[in-house]
Simulated scan of single mutants.
Amino acid sequence: MIRIILSIIFVIICVALSAIVLLQEGKSQGLGSIGGMADTYWGRNKGRSMEGKLEKFTKYGAVLFFILALVLNLNIL
């Protein structure tokens, strides 16, 4: 029963990660001002912007993805 629940959570995380990655902007946007990026308003407050939140969700989702993948492959459940 737990294996089924973990598998469903795993699929939901996979779909969410795919959507989050597709929503993110490319890193090549804004390469024209490489040196001054940290001094701008958006550079200092990136964590509070939508792009910063998407990056955080991507990191946490990737960690959950790998942990669930390892747990589901242990075959102890």
Rank of each mutant, 00 (worst) to 15 (best):
R48W: 01
K46A: 09
K46T: 08
I4P: 00
L22W: 09
S18V: 07
I67L: 09
E25M: 12
T40G: 10
M37D: 10
W42H: 09
L74R: 09
L22Q: 02
E55H: 11
V21L: 11
V71C: 05
L54S: 07
L22A: 11
G36S: 13
Q24Y: 03
N73M: 12
K53S: 07
S18P: 00
L23H: 04
R3I: 11
I13P: 03
E25A: 13
L72E: 00
S7N: 14
G43I: 01
T58L: 07
S28A: 15
G47R: 12
L74D: 07
L77D: 08
V11I: 14
A62C: 06
Q24G: 06
F65D: 01
S28K: 15
L54R: 05
I8F: 10
K56G: 04
G32T: 10
G26T: 14
A16H: 02
I34A: 15
N73K: 07
N73R: 11
E25I: 13
K27R: 15
W42R: 14
G52V: 04
F66E: 04
A38L: 11
A69N: 06
F66P: 00
A19F: 05
G43Y: 01
I67V: 14
A69V: 05
V11E: 02
E25S: 12
L31R: 15
V11P: 03
A16M: 05
E25Y: 12
L22T: 08
C14T: 10
G36I: 06
K56D: 08
V11Q: 01
I13L: 08
A62T: 13
K27P: 14
I20V: 14
G47D: 12
A69P: 01
I67P: 00
L64M: 12
V21H: 10
G36R: 04
K56E: 05
G61M: 00
F66Q: 02
L6M: 13
F57Q: 06
L23R: 03
S7A: 13
L64S: 11
S28D: 15
L31N: 14
L17V: 01
V63L: 13
G26K: 15
L22C: 08
S49V: 04
V15T: 04
V63Y: 05
G32Y: 11
L6N: 01
I12P: 08
W42I: 15
R44L: 06
D39W: 02
V21E: 03
C14G: 08
V63Q: 03
V63F: 07
S28M: 13
G26E: 14
M1S: 13
R3T: 08
I76C: 09
I8V: 15
F57D: 00
I13Q: 05
L54Y: 08
A16T: 08
I13M: 01
I12H: 02
L77I: 11
W42F: 10
T40V: 10
R48F: 11
A19V: 13
L17H: 02
L72S: 01
R44A: 05
N45E: 13
